[in-house]
Write a protein that binds this DNA or RNA. Structure first.
Lengths: 329, 329
DNA sequence: CTGAAAGCGCTAACAC
DNA sequence: GTGTTAGCGCTTTCAG
């Protein structure tokens, strides 16, 4: 099928292309019968407006870029889902970028985002990437940050206060006299882990104590599990806090391997919520972070920024809930 | 920062915009010193070519559309990852679309894809969507189908032969005298489940038997689990085959709830591979389908189609592997 | 080797 | 109401 343009439709309907443009865009100032003629022509020729040309003429692409670390984590998927769902509602397209180590540098991604002239960018990333953010703001892109509390003129953020969550959790355990608490950390979620640690540290400090137990594990489940299996041969804790479900599972499985009873001898809390938390045995006690909402709300905020709405909440905190399951008493 | 265009660079470098265009695109026919001047100007002004304008002029957008059912399944994430990784290598952008029921119809998605004038579209979907496919091919879009074996002039496919996999699996059990086999099915993966059933049916027929055991479960884990818990009070099987990890888990958990020993009294096989299969307890025996590769290969095939390469393999079968874990003997 | 100019498909004043 | 025309930013003949 030959490419059919607005000209073809115009000729077919015996009107000018301006008129066709008007009916496409639903402007009221077109007479009923000519609108009908145009629509007939559109149907007959199977015409679909070229969004690229529209984008060029309008200086807006109605697409927004989404940057995530990796698409394969369960909660990343949820975020994407949420964002996509509301994007559809507002007729925005999503350009997805992943920051997979070894394949693309974040700088490159920013570069292609700038070139692609999207209307805005939503970033969910573990590290705060100041330089890259600056590059983006230089080019006037509205930005929504997921997971990082921060805002400026054209940066908004949607986040959950991990620090507070951990603070409360740790405080509770300390008050119960369970002071042997450790946080599992890997390299992958540096910024997030930092927040957890801050929360724990504060809780300890308030009680004149010092927090310093980190279990540094490898990135992958398999090696983490092996590592922890060894680890638990000599070390015990009252509570281990892990960020992702896979890490919490590694802890649980390694504990089982060492005949450590969960939750009797060891309690485990997973920070990130994932549907697997309640599917596995033992069911993982976790915070319920609204991953889907994180995405959905971010996109909603983005639409507001794009409409230049004046709105007060440039930093939106989503609330969490602690859901005790089988790994805590 | 004001929008800087190719004109600005041209003026700054005291050349014509044609020359700037040439250096941007790395055409050799530019003298060394003028190339340098131009590049200086580009750096000075922070110029980034407008991909939209390029797209319009070139009639190609260097972006391809990816359609998936939902981003939150583990294997969907893997596919996206794989596809994205090789897309980056070839400098393609990815427009992501999800077919979430109740929010967007597939027809609408096809529509926006056509309008967006992407260079190609990769579809991973459970049902074969003939009409939508036809709409796409009418507009000359190269298409790569993930999971469905099929090819035409501008449709290629990358898939795993689920039917064969199940055929072999079921045959083995039948030959061992374990004939009580059931397949779990929900509405979500209709086309995939159909393939499983075909495989099982064939295996039964070859032995003069009839296959007819389906366990129809709800879509969500929670209700599936509840349903299966009841189900196992009265029914037993030698082997239950489930498609997704969550479904296999529902079976395993429901069995445990009824004191059915896995794998002694009941064996469970999960079709789709997910990293959770080996993380949960009992570890789920499953086929190892190369989700990441499914995405990566698809994108690779797409680049070939876009280069108009003549290539023979328009239907690429990826091989699977059965990985016995703790839910089979 | 470089510049001028047409064109990619559409929108939005500005006329009529 | 509808048509004319000038862009939007870039590529690409075609001259020079």
């Amino acid at each position: 099928m030959k490419r059919v343009t607005i000209y073809d439709v115009a000729k077919e309907a015996k009107v000018s292309l301006a008129t066709v443009s008007r009916v496409i865009n639903g402007l009221e100032i077109v007479r009923e019968d000519t609108r009908l003629r145009v629509n007939e022509a559109i149907d007959k020729l199977g015409y679909k407006p070229n969004a690229i040309a529209q984008g060029l003429a309008l200086q807006k692409t109605t697409t927004i870029a989404l940057v995530v670390p990796e698409a394969s984590f369960s909660y990343t998927g949820q975020i994407i889902n949420g964002l996509l769902d509301v994007a559809k509602i507002y007729k925005y397209n999503i350009m997805l970028h992943t920051v997979s180590e070894g394949i693309v540098e974040i700088g490159e991604i920013i570069d292609t985002i700038i070139k692609s002239r999207v209307d805005g960018v939503v970033i969910y990333n573990d590290k705060l990437i100041y330089d890259e953010l600056k590059a983006l703001t230089n080019y006037q892109f509205p930005i929504v940050l997921i997971g990082n509390k921060m805002s400026t003129n054209n940066i908004c953020s949607v986040y959950v206060d991990l620090e507070k969550a951990v603070y409360e959790l740790v405080s509770e355990y300390l008050d119960k006299g369970k002071g042997d608490i450790a946080i599992v950390q890997d390299r992958k979620n540096k910024y997030m882990i930092e927040q957890l640690i801050k929360g724990a540290t504060t809780a300890y400090e308030r009680r004149g104590l010092v927090f310093e137990q980190y279990i540094e594990i490898p990135q992958e489940y398999r090696s983490s599990y092996q590592y922890l299996k060894e680890y638990f041969k000599t070390r015990r804790h009252d509570l281990v806090i892990a960020y992702r479900d896979s890490q919490a599972l590694a802890v649980a499985n390694a504990a089982a391997e060492n005949d450590i009873k969960v939750p009797e001898e060891l309690e485990i809390v997973c920070i990130i919520d994932s549907k697997y938390n309640s599917m596995v045995r033992p069911q993982l006690s976790s915070f319920t972070f609204p991953s889907y909402d994180l995405g959905a709300v971010s996109m909603r905020v983005m639409t507001k920024m794009l409409k230049q709405d004046n709105f007060d909440d440039r930093e939106i905190e989503l609330s969490y809930l602690f859901t005790p399951r089988q790994t805590t008493k």
